Simulated scan of single mutants.
Amino acid sequence: MWRILQIVSLSLFLILSSTGCEFSSPKLKIYTVGIVSIDDNFNPFVENFKTGMAKAGYVEGKTIHYLYDGPIKKEQLADRLVFLKNQHLDLLFTLSTPVSQKAKEVFADTKVPILFCPVYDPVTSGLVDSLTNPGGNITGVMVGGSLGKALGYLLDVLPGLKTIFVPFPQKDSSARANVGDLKTAAAKYGIRIVPGQIDNRQDLASLMENIPADADAVWLPNSPLIVSNASMIIQAAMKRGLPVSSTTSKAQDGALLSYGVAPQKIGIQLSALADKLLKGVPASQLPVERAEYILAVNLQTAQRLGINVQESLLKQADIIIR
């Protein structure tokens, strides 16, 4: 009997070998994630997203592959998205409102889920139907909703504040929404907002040479154009002896105050959402999340401008630049 079993087993092995069959362990699924950015300032979001994915068990080069060679020029955006559309993506990660809007348009006829960040107001910008029920194939992390608190911090430092100058790109829907919300928040305190409309960096440079004489401070709205030129804006304001406040993390560049997002924390939020999307949860079933914020105070700037920052505010700060 044993001899018969040996003969049968050998025969079966020879048959399988002759047909080219091999015995191997199941292959691991390798996910392909496209990433699109048009601004170097978003690099920390990309790195922290990857870090979060690694902590979630996705090993780059083994179980996940990122199609990303760094930020591209804005005029290359459409072509890059079309290219990625043909790469059989499992997920598309888009950075900024303009990139996310274009991605939604290009990928409208696909089932590829889109994960966005940092977007100021995904509803106003037309990315989602609502924060709780995004609809379609897109969701992500928003960075709006902190203006009231950020303005309150600035008033703690400058109680006599009356006028804030706000440069912003008029074609950027996120920046327009930011300015509108700032006006609403400022009206409660009797503060006047003076917008300065621009279209490009050249406009911005010219505008900052002509800051209104009655401005008491300068505000940086959420916009790729503003964020990428924050240092220039801050330097121009400092020449006029004006403090700069922001809801982007720019205290390290010389802004007096910033109440902005923490890239490390957003990385965790984004990777958790990405994990669910890659496991098949529809984007329409994942509510848009709000980013966590950190308060940063630049005491070097305060000293240069002769501004006293109360100890009570410093105790609330997550970061103090001395």
Results as ranks from 00 to 15, higher is better:
D181T: 08
K162M: 04
L182P: 05
K73V: 00
A274G: 06
A283W: 06
P113A: 07
M232L: 13
G20S: 13
V141C: 08
D156P: 03
F116V: 04
L14A: 15
E209F: 08
P287T: 01
D90P: 07
S206A: 13
I114M: 02
M53T: 10
L161T: 04
L28W: 04
S174Y: 03
L182W: 08
L314C: 10
D172A: 02
I35M: 11
P212N: 06
I64A: 12
N43R: 08
T248N: 13
M1S: 14
L12C: 13
N210V: 00
Q252A: 12
L305G: 12
S246E: 04
I226N: 04
I30H: 06
S25M: 15
V166W: 01
L278H: 08
L314G: 11
D129W: 06
I321D: 13
I198L: 09
L277H: 02
A255Y: 09
K265R: 14
V157Q: 10
A296Y: 07
K111A: 15
L81W: 01
K162V: 00
A205R: 04
Q6R: 13
C21D: 11
G145P: 03
Q300G: 04
S249V: 02
L182R: 01
V36H: 00
A56W: 04
S130R: 06
D129E: 14
N86I: 01
F93N: 05
V46C: 04
G145D: 12
S228V: 01
L155F: 12
Q264Y: 12
L81F: 03
M1L: 11
G190D: 11
A150E: 11
S146M: 07
D216I: 02
M1R: 02
D79Q: 08
S11W: 02
M142I: 01
V244T: 08
S9P: 03
L270R: 03
T110K: 05
L305N: 09
S245E: 12
A291V: 07
P159S: 06
I4M: 10
V244P: 07
F168M: 10
K183Y: 07
M232Y: 03
A237R: 00
T110D: 06
I38R: 00
N229T: 06
L286C: 10
P113V: 02
E22Q: 15
I266W: 07
S130V: 05
T132G: 14
E209S: 14
A217E: 09
A185H: 09
V106R: 00
I138H: 00
L257G: 02
P118D: 04
K55Q: 15
D275T: 14
I193K: 09
Q269T: 08
L314R: 00
M53G: 10
F49S: 05
G190I: 04
Q285D: 15
L305E: 13
I234C: 08
E22T: 15
L313S: 07
D172M: 00
G34T: 07
I321Y: 14
S37I: 03
P26M: 10
K55H: 11
T248M: 09
F107K: 01
P282D: 12
T63M: 09
G135A: 05
I321Q: 10
N308A: 14
T247Y: 00
I30F: 05
V297T: 04
T184P: 03
I164L: 09
I198D: 11
S146T: 07
S9L: 15
A78K: 08
G180A: 08
G57N: 08
S18I: 09
I193F: 04
R3D: 15
A187V: 01
L5D: 11
P167H: 06
